[in-house]
Simulated scan of single mutants.
Amino acid sequence: MAEPRVFTSAEELKTAVGEELGVSDWHEIDQRRIDLFAEATGDHQWIHVDPERAAQGPFGSTIAHGYLTLSLLPLLVPQTLRVDGARMGVNYGAEKVRFPSPVPVGSRVRARVTLDAATEKAGGTQVAATVVVEREGAEKPACIAQTLTVYYW
Rank of each mutant, 00 (worst) to 15 (best):
M88Y: 05
Y67H: 13
P100N: 09
L70F: 14
V6I: 15
L36P: 00
H65L: 06
L68T: 11
F99A: 06
L115F: 10
K140E: 14
D84Y: 03
V105T: 12
R87V: 12
R33P: 00
V150H: 06
K140C: 04
C143Y: 07
P74M: 10
T125F: 03
G93T: 12
K14W: 03
E139I: 03
S71E: 10
A54V: 09
G123L: 02
A16Q: 01
G22V: 02
E19Q: 15
Q31W: 06
K121Q: 12
G60R: 04
V23Q: 12
I47E: 08
R98D: 06
A40S: 13
I34D: 01
A86D: 11
V83E: 04
L76A: 08
E139K: 14
T125N: 03
D84V: 13
P4F: 14
V49A: 00
A117L: 08
A118L: 10
A111M: 04
E20L: 04
A94Q: 12
V131N: 09
R33T: 14
P100E: 06
R33A: 14
L21I: 12
W26R: 07
E52A: 14
V97S: 06
S71M: 10
E3V: 14
F59Y: 15
A55D: 05
R5P: 03
G85D: 04
R108S: 11
P141A: 10
I47F: 09
R32A: 15
P4D: 13
V105E: 01
E3G: 11
M88G: 06
V77I: 15
D30W: 03
V105P: 00
S71Y: 11
V105W: 01
P74S: 10
A38R: 00
E39W: 00
A94H: 12
S107E: 02
R87F: 04
T69E: 02
I34M: 03
H48R: 03
P100L: 11
H44F: 15
L36Y: 06
M1D: 13
L73G: 08
V132H: 01
G106M: 08
Q126M: 15
R87T: 15
V127N: 11
A54P: 10
E120I: 01
G66K: 09
A54W: 09
Y67L: 13
L70C: 07
V131G: 10
D116R: 15
D30G: 13
Q45V: 00
Y151S: 03
L75S: 11
A38E: 00
I144W: 08
R135L: 07
K14R: 15
A145E: 10
S61Y: 00
G124S: 06
D43M: 07
E134V: 03
V90P: 02
W46V: 02
G42I: 11
K96W: 06
A145V: 15
Q31A: 07
A10R: 13
E12D: 05
D30Y: 06
S61D: 10
E28V: 13
I144S: 08
A10L: 02
V133Y: 01
R5I: 08
T8R: 15
G42C: 12
D84G: 01
L148R: 14
